[in-house]
Nucleic acid binder design. Sequence first.
DNA 1: AATGTCTGCCCC
DNA 2: ATTCTGC
DNA 3: GCAGAATGGGCAGACATT
Length: 568
Amino acid sequence: MFCCKQLRLYRFQQFSTFRWCSQVFDQIEKESRRKIKISLFQDALKQAEEFKVKEEFIRFTLCDVNSQSQLIEAAVPANVLYSAIAKTYNLEFSLVERLYGEINSMNNFEDVFNAHNKSTSIQFSSLFQKIQEIFELSGGGCEEQKEVLVKDLLSLCSSAQEVKYLIRFLKKRMRIGLSTQSVSSLLDESERKRLLGYQSGSGDLQIGIPIQPQLAKSFQKENKEEEITMEKIKKKFLNDDLGGCYFEYKYDGERLQVHYTNGEVKLFGRSLEEKTKQFKELSNQLKDYFHNNKFDDVILDCEMICYDKGEILPFQEMQNKTYENSVYLSLVCFDILYHNKQILLNKTYSQRLQIYNSILKPITNQRQVISHIISHRFKNESEMDRFYKQALIDGLEGIMIKRDAVYSPGSRNDWLKIKKEKDIDLVVLGGYYGQGKRQQWLGSFLLGIYENGRLHPIAKIGTGFSDQKLEELTKRYMSKPSCSCPQHLVGFKDQPHVWFSQNDVWEVTYDTVSASPLYPAQNSQLNTGISVRFPRFKRERPDKTIEQSGPIQDLLEEYFKVQRKEFF
DNA sequence: AATGTCTGCCCC
DNA sequence: ATTCTGC
DNA sequence: GCAGAATGGGCAGACATT
């Protein structure tokens, strides 16, 4: 008996410390096989449960404190974190900043840390409690207080490894190759609701708790000249089985999941955040609508758009109007997950379509609080092709093609989105150090465009590179002498870490042109700068000179066309 | 009170 | 949002 | 195909600074 008690006590000390937690993370991070990662986490979860820190352990893994009061800024601001690190270990702020608080990349951090070595590690539960205290701070002067508390936390760490994972937590990037999907798969439905805030959709359904929205994958062109043809779509996505598919317009708004029961409405965003209060006016209008139309209970999947005088506003303008005046906000419903006490997730799309069509009016160019999207059953390829071209003429983002399948929360497999992509040649001006797996490379670049004899910043770019390409580009530009900031860009707000002395031309793909408060490229016709939405690297263009970039007139013209509602 | 800077399971 | 990567 | 982890523009809101 006595032995048993001793053993339990011993295990308690071993398992509930922060040292235990950081060792688990280290093990999971080093393991590349996802199955093994998950089983390692599962074992740790059992231990955490035994020592009553399961919830804290999960929240720590997902970098989520869930401090009930939704009002607070969740993260410790980067500069507060860096300052706390610098002061605790007597390092230069600029060094910490330069390495983005990644102690992995600090030379000899072990040596630096040795002075702080401790034999005993803090209990995981008390560490988590201290973290919560930090996250509950808000209001004037809270950043100073946060810094003090972060310094305390750092000094409580007993090993460099603990420091590493504490910093990652505070930066909200644990990056051990295991995140919400894997954690979710190990939880039961009630834990999922409580800890992750959503339900899986399997089994019972509770109205008022969001379901992961189904997503779409995008059709990607293989080269610039390639035309998007329905033939190719068939080959890539639908696998010769177009017959049962539906296609519809893709509206460029904001995803909203609507829940209605017992006379109350709740709204959820794409990331499952509750939006009811944010769109209060709309919520009230919906409540009246459902009440007046004798709805009992329902869950709808919608796109929120914004009308002005019978016209749908572009995305950027919708964002501007969203908070100050929701009078024009409107929902386009494109799916139904629950109706009249019936779960509809396992019905096929054609069945769900029939239901939402029967209870809502179709979308028109007059504003209605909520209306249903017009969905077309596939007849032939040329009809779908015409529909896609018409979508662009009508100023929409593109089209969606949907298999006649059940609703699969989180899946991207059954819906395909087709949008118009554009390409432009831009000039690389400088680079920014990367983070995480890119910490030894440049992780993104500043791009410019030639205008009036000078290069003006117009966008940053950080995706579209293979690892190999990024390494090659980093070596190339870092091995050349960097230059100082060009005279005319001294006031630019987002200075690159390295200005390049050699400016090459890159081909960049983007979706649309946007008005920009940050990027100065413009001309006299416009009192704002412009940039591009969704920029991605396509290839280098060594055959082009900087004068051949752009031209910016093309982008401006595209912007003005959208303003004038002239599409193609 | 006005302006500047930074952040977000933000929205896309 | 887009894209790449290892499994 | 999935899940994870890099990265984009730009908005409102929260804080700090002046």
